[in-house]
């Protein structure tokens, strides 16, 4: 069990496994599994995410994010997603119960991600925005349920 640190206290209610239907920006539907786990006595929170085909089970998207706190107390996420590559997301201002991050992708694109807990559901939204030219892709929304503990039990 990780010690409670300022970083872990931000993620306390998200640690564990979440799953739910998802649609990628490509339009493909699948089942998304997200696993938040902390390391090094709460200095690091790792997110592993997979989306697989609901019929065949084939994984068609996989990624990993490493969350840490900057000196100013804001979050930074070192992110890898197979189809985009590597990027660094920085926390941006938002509602108090929303964790919002924004960063640059290769090719002049930007990526924004937000996480919000609504009762026992984790709401994940993300959007890819084009650079100077090109078209923004639609914002994707996934509602995930926690399946590793009884509903309402919290972290």
């Amino acid at each position: 069990m990780a010690m409670t640190t300022p970083l872990v206290s931000r993620f306390q209610s998200m640690l564990g496994y979440w799953r739910g239907p998802n649609q990628l920006e490509t339009g493909r539907h699948g089942l998304l599994e997200m696993h938040f786990h902390s390391h090094f006595e709460g200095e690091l929170v790792q997110l592993d995410a997979y989306t697989w085909d609901t019929v065949t089970g084939e994984t068609f998207s996989a990624g990993t994010g490493l969350f840490a706190l900057k000196h100013d107390g804001r979050l930074i996420e070192n992110l890898y997603v197979g189809r985009f590559g590597f990027c660094m997301l920085h926390e941006t201002d938002d509602e108090p119960d929303v964790l919002a991050l924004l960063g640059d992708l290769p090719g002049g694109r930007t990526m924004s991600v937000s996480l919000r807990l609504e009762d026992d559901e984790l709401l994940l939204t993300s959007q890819l925005k084009a650079g100077v030219v090109g078209k923004d892709l639609p914002r994707t929304v996934a509602r995930l349920k926690r399946y590793d503990r009884p509903p309402g039990e919290g972290a």
Binding site: L66, A68, I76, N78, F86
Partner: peptide
Amino acid sequence: LAPAPSGVLRALAYSTIHGPLL
């Protein structure tokens, strides 16, 4: 350690001394 879309391998990392690293 994972492949970028270009095929180049990079490592996403976190260090207790240096923080986030690429």
